[in-house]
Design a protein around this nucleic acid. Structure first.
Lengths: 187, 187
DNA sequence: CGGGGCTTTTGACAATGGTCAAAAACCGGG
DNA sequence: CCCGGTTTTTGACCATTGTCAAAAGCCCCG
């Protein structure tokens, strides 16, 4: 829990009362490798904070798994689309390692927003950061070559490369595993 | 101004007091075709609401202009990255048609957030919608073919195709103008 | 109605990346 | 230390898209 609170405070520091409220709303869960946090078709009713471990979001296209995000220590994770709209998810969320997460339900989060303006502010600021990150990734996907995307990943997120298999990284970058292997051999 | 208020209320309806505050904070500006709202290197200090007209954001890469978003009636526009971080912008924002916009400075917006929890909520909800949209666009960019992206655009945003030149649409979709022309001739 | 400039199309060719299949390397458990 | 499964690499070939250059089309203005 301390990890969650200190991460939150790094975004926007909360007063004691709000911190207490946060503590009361998140529940800890432990998962082992390959377990699922969410599967396709289910509605995602929680927001999660990953205290320890690694996780990926993927969906299935033409029988292949397309991993399109990873989460690690100190990341908030959820199926954004499903959590926000409360529609069935198109994605699966699966642990890549044994992990510890803290969960809060959508109802409780909404209540927190009503009771603590500060917490809604925190989330608004978090959205800004996440939006900018996604924008950068979008520009990369649309306008950069496969090799450039891989080099960017090495530069910006070396931890991903160390902890995740090549096949997952390839689909994360939007390229085939074979092409990624060739790119690596050329470096 | 009525357009702005009713658009805002469609996200999350505001009480009278908050509406008054909004009215006092936005200023109207009129621009003609090809004028710039922001140029590369400048810090974007305002958020804009486009009441009427059309606008694009683009940046320059290898001497070519890459249009990566369009705005039309009822869109909020800004250089997100620059506005949020208050760093110099890498993008240019240019009007495609004569337009009417309403502007609010970052300082005033921050003040509104402090004084009206409701307005920060509205923005938080707006971010959610914008995030989901960007996510869809990202998935399209990374995992769909050029032809599929164009067909999606026709289906989801026919107004773009009607109001914007082929060259701009091509770079928006991340493909060359020639390829887009060929895709069209095959339909 | 006839340029002149901009936008769109067409053609030829090259480069990038995907697919399928097989070989090689790696890795954990017995 | 060896086996069996998984992950990664390599090879041959193909499809999609990009690039460069030129032609055609379109539209506004005088």
């Amino acid at each position: 829990m301390q990890t969650l609170l200190s991460h939150i405070n790094s975004y926007h520091s909360l007063n004691d009362e709000a911190q207490k409220a946060v503590e009361n709303c998140f529940e800890q869960h432990v998962f082992s490798k390959n377990e699922y946090l969410l599967t396709e078709g289910k509605i995602c009713r929680h927001l999660f904070f990953l205290e320890k471990g690694a996780i990926r979001g993927y969906y299935t296209l033409d029988g292949k798994e397309i991993t399109y995000w990873f989460g690690f220590e100190n990341d908030f994770v959820t199926s954004f689309h499903s959590f926000i709209t409360q529609q069935p998810s198109v994605e699966n969320i699966q642990f890549l390692e044994g992990s510890i997460v803290w969960a809060i339900s959508k109802e409780r989060l909404t209540r927190l927003f009503n009771e603590h303006h500060e917490i809604e502010r925190l989330v608004r600021i978090a959205y800004e950061k996440y939006y900018i990150r996604l924008e950068e990734r979008f520009v990369g996907a649309q306008f950069k070559s496969a090799a450039e995307r891989y080099e960017n990943l090495i530069r910006q997120s070396p931890h991903i490369i160390e902890r995740v298999s090549l096949g997952h990284i390839a689909s994360y970058l939007g390229i085939s595993q074979e092409t990624l292997s060739r790119i690596r051999s050329r470096l």
